[in-house]
């Protein structure tokens, strides 16, 4: 895997989308392709992105919060 390919996997894992599931947790498929450093970087990127997303949201919600609310309202 090239550094550029790894960065793109990290960018995906740092997003809030996760596969739908019933009882089990469903990981992002790209998470499995990352090494420990890549997973740690994805965590830090997500942590940094969410306040920015919230600042751009009319209700001050991150994409994580919106994803949780969408599941509740289903």
């Amino acid at each position: 895997m090239t550094p550029e390919e790894k960065e793109l996997l990290i960018e995906q894992v740092a997003g809030a989308w996760r596969p739908e599931g019933d009882d089990e947790l469903h990981y992002h498929k790209a998470w499995h392709d990352l090494d420990a450093a890549g997973r740690a970087r994805a965590f830090e990127l997500a942590r940094a992105l969410r306040p920015l997303e919230a600042a751009l949201d009319p209700d001050g919600l991150s994409t994580t919060a919106r994803a949780v609310l969408a599941k509740i309202r289903k």
Binding site: A16, L25, W31, A36, A40, F43, R50, L61, T64, A65
Partner: peptide, 23 residues
């Protein structure tokens, strides 16, 4: 959620290399 999410996320940091924290 707007107030709680960042704190809950941070408490999971030590798991970040072994589980998908976002999920």
């Amino acid at each position: 959620l707007a107030g709680a999410e960042p704190t809950v996320r941070l408490t999971l940091r030590s798991f970040a290399t072994v589980i998908d924290v976002e999920a």
